[in-house]
Amino acid sequence: MCPDSAKTFYLDNREIPFKEGQTVFDAAMTAGAYIPHLCHNPDYEPHSSCRLCTVIVNGRPFASCTQPAVAGQMVQSDTPELREMRRMLTQMLFVEGNHYCPSCEKSGNCKLQATAYELGLQDNHFPQFFPKRERDASHPDILLDRDRCILCGLCVRVSRDIDKKNVFAMTGRGIHTVIVVDSPSGELKDSKATAQDEAVQHCPVGALLLKGKGFEVPIGERIYDKASISVHSVEAFQAREAVHG
């Protein structure tokens, strides 16, 4: 058996070392190769639902956040076809929700917006759906704005696995899928959610927000003012690896 240090695969013809059990995504990010992603937060278990991190492994598409790295495999990520697919997926996310970046307090800190910039989106291409979604402002500290939800499921997973509260779940099918709240009234104010919950802290878009904090961080000091999402994600991933290994 090869020692860990000898295991590598090829990502866009670049040799990437990996450790046993690492995913293609993790190994790539450790090596400084950014793979676009939205539903995956490296602090939590991967979910492979947004499909933005899809790569071609030995000729077949896989979500890199859940695909184990295998020595010698040939992986393509930065190809015209995959870039176009990611652009299209992101455009569809924009049109099936109501994303008004100009007045959104998440602007500059939003992974969807930053990914769109990274992918070079110039427009939404598809017609807007303008869905009618209920907003839940009942909680004294938390705002649930379903208009901005991209159904990444992170809040569902984190509330279940980390906060151990199961506050959030998804209901409905297809385009009618929405986030719902576990409480007698169905409203956040009657749920177990608190402002300290990790599920509330890590929404990649502006769907779950702490109330009254909007625009406190000035332009120029927001996350993606300082670095593009590709640079920021890799740096954050590598810093996390340095701490946790």
């Binding site: 100009p102 007045s103 959104c104 307090e105 705002l143 109330k211 909007g214």
Partner: peptide, 14 residues
């Protein structure tokens, strides 16, 4: 209408 109040100054400047 229906938007949180802290959004107002950024929204209405448009």
């Amino acid at each position: 209408q229906g938007r949180p109040y802290w959004e107002i100054p950024v929204m209405v400047q448009r």
